[in-house]
């Protein structure tokens, strides 16, 4: 989806996550979903295919490392939501105006909340792996 109100320098492709685009809304939950899937694959392959017994002591650090990377990416998205969309965590004044600016602020606000939710969801995947450490 191309940005609408942005002046794109000649020769530069339009940015996917920028004012006017809603891709930022699906980015954070997609990172959570990717982390969940990768963690599942790592654990499943380790436990079922590599024949390493019933302990996840080693691959759990892979899951934790992936989690740290994903949370870092989500923090980056949150920064974009604030800088490019003008998003804030708490909207004090209602967004009722029908304008590009108001829509961007709304998208930025929702993206920020989704970033928090996705980061917590990633934590909830990493914590059981770290504490239990068993297949």
């Amino acid at each position: 989806m191309a940005p609408r109100n942005k002046t794109v320098p000649p020769g530069d492709a339009p940015r996917v996550i920028d004012q006017g685009s809603v891709w930022i809304l699906v980015a954070a939950p997609s990172i959570w979903a990717a982390h969940f899937l990768l963690s599942y694959w790592v654990a499943a392959i380790w436990c079922a295919k590599l024949g390493r017994g019933t302990t996840l002591m080693e691959p759990r650090w892979i899951i934790a490392g992936l989690g740290a990377l994903c949370i870092a990416a989500i923090i980056g998205l949150a920064v974009l939501a604030i800088r490019r969309y003008g998003g804030v965590f708490v909207i004090i004044e209602e967004i009722t105006e029908s304008s590009e600016r108001a829509r961007d602020r709304f998208v930025g606000h929702v993206a920020l909340l989704l970033c928090v939710l996705s980061a917590v969801a990633i934590l909830f995947t990493v914590i059981p792996g770290m504490v239990l450490g068993e297949c």
Binding site: L123, F124, I127, P128, L132, G133
Partner: peptide, 13 residues
């Protein structure tokens, strides 16, 4: 919720 999750997981472990 994270604290309760860790507590519950330690019991389970």
């Amino acid at each position: 919720v994270c604290g309760l999750l860790v507590w519950g997981l330690l019991i389970l472990r």
